Simulated assay, not measured.
Amino acid sequence: MKLILTHEVTGLGEPGDIIEVKDGYGRNYLIPRGYAIRWSRGGEKDVAAIRRARKVREIRTLDQATEVKGRLAGLKVTLQTRAGDTGRLFGSVTVADVVAAIKAAGGPDIDKRRVEIGTPIKTVGSHRITVRLHQEVSAALDLDVVPA
């Protein structure tokens, strides 16, 4: 099945890429979640628009990625959330919460799809977050979760 990616999918490609996948994977996973659309001749026009939008928000060069990595390395990111007496959170910390905390700490705007949380954050304390800035550059960030 031939598809056009609308979002970045790890291992497949970036928005605007035309990919070939098995029918079931495309029909049951990529298309229903909005990660891809079916390829057609008319869809080729959409590829240009998707790539233009990607260039606006993407980190273009390796130098720019290392600059953003340096800005992230110097940040002290703290996230206040509700927690019980034992230090366990009511719910878990989401990627959107992390992006908002980075922004509140004076950091750069980061696309939430680039933030990777290894294991779900459900306790108060310091946690390690990875931000993929470029194919070759990723930044490690310490997130302090404190009770509100």
Rank of each mutant, 00 (worst) to 15 (best):
L12A: 07
G13Y: 00
G13W: 06
E14Y: 15
E14L: 15
P15V: 05
G16M: 00
G16A: 08
D17E: 11
E20C: 10
K22D: 11
D23G: 04
G24K: 02
G24I: 09
Y25S: 00
N28V: 08
Y29S: 12
L30I: 08
P32V: 02
G34H: 09
G34S: 03
Y35F: 15
I37E: 09
R38I: 04
R38G: 10
W39N: 01
S40Q: 04
S40F: 00
R41I: 12
R41E: 11
K45M: 11
D46M: 12
A48N: 12
I50N: 00
R54F: 06
V56I: 14
R57A: 12
R57C: 10
R60Q: 13
R60Y: 04
D63R: 15
Q64R: 06
A65F: 05
A65M: 01
E67H: 10
E67A: 14
K69T: 01
G70P: 03
L72E: 04
A73C: 02
A73F: 12
L75Y: 07
L79R: 00
Q80Y: 12
Q80L: 14
Q80E: 15
Q80T: 11
T81G: 09
A83T: 06
G84T: 02
T86K: 15
G91K: 10
V95L: 02
D97M: 08
V99F: 09
V99W: 07
